[in-house]
């Protein structure tokens, strides 16, 4: 008997079932199919303006910095401002995200932009989030050529652009949106929920920023 069959047989023996009971199968299949929503905290159940304000407040609470701009056209200047304020060289790396590509980078002729994955030696990266969740100030990023996952973790400063319209109140609403995009039960290779810059409390339980991931997380809310 394979290890797989042996483990499943032991599970069934312990539960007193044989695995073919139609009721049990129907119950499990229905749960995976319907994905019933549990208890949603009231905290995030606000109108869009309230959700944006909550997202910002929760993100700042976990040491993210947040700026709001009116449109995508303002993003290059907002990035240049951030780099200046942190005394960083005017350069960063990004992926092929068409929303980022369409921004008027000519307006910031000093910005030096490279694209593609990070090799671990970039100081700053820029990503476009797929969404954000107000209840905990959490960004959601998705793997792929548009926004390579290495850009979320290797650079010292991670700048994330998010459409204000993509901010939702709770995790469940975010997953409902992902299902519409990808289909039921299908996921991109990686979804990263990011709630603040990297940190560790492993030395005497004192929280310090910048463990292995970015030391700083800067969020640009668009719209």
């Amino acid at each position: 008997m394979s290890a797989r069959d042996a483990i499943l047989a032991r599970v069934r023996r312990s539960l007193g079932v044989d695995g073919t009971e139609p009721d049990r199968r129907a119950t499990a299949e229905a749960r995976m199919h319907d994905a019933p929503i549990g208890l949603i905290p009231a905290r995030g159940q606000l109108d869009p303006a309230g959700q944006r304000a909550l997202f910002r407040a929760m993100a700042e609470k976990v040491s993210s910095s947040v700026v709001a701009v009116a449109s995508g056209a303002d993003v290059p200047a907002a990035i240049a401002d951030y780099l200046r304020s942190k005394n960083l060289p005017p350069s960063f790396r990004r992926g092929d995200d068409p929303r980022l590509a369409a921004m008027p980078w000519d307006s910031q002729p000093n910005l030096e932009i490279s694209t593609g994955i990070s090799d671990g030696h970039d100081l700053v990266s820029v990503s476009h989030a797929v969404g954000a969740i107000a209840e905990t100030g959490t960004l959601a990023l998705q793997s792929g050529g548009d926004n390579p996952t290495t850009l979320n973790f290797l650079p010292d400063h991670h700048i994330v652009v998010v459409d204000a319209g993509a901010i939702v109140g709770d995790y469940e609403t975010f997953w409902a949106g992902m299902r519409q995009r990808f289909g039921k039960g299908v996921m991109p290779r990686t979804v990263n929920f990011v709630t603040g810059p990297s940190r560790s409390g492993d030395i005497e339980q004192t929280i310090l920023l910048g463990a292995h991931g970015p030391r700083a997380l800067h969020i640009i809310m668009v719209g």
């Binding site: 929760m58 609470k61 209840e135 959490t138 290779r189």
Partner: peptide, 18 residues
């Protein structure tokens, strides 16, 4: 309220993944 990184991983690198 939430840990910094919650990562959802599904399978290996896809055809268009860099």
């Amino acid at each position: 309220d939430m840990s910094v990184y919650t990562t959802f991983s599904t399978g290996p690198r896809r055809a268009d993944d860099p």
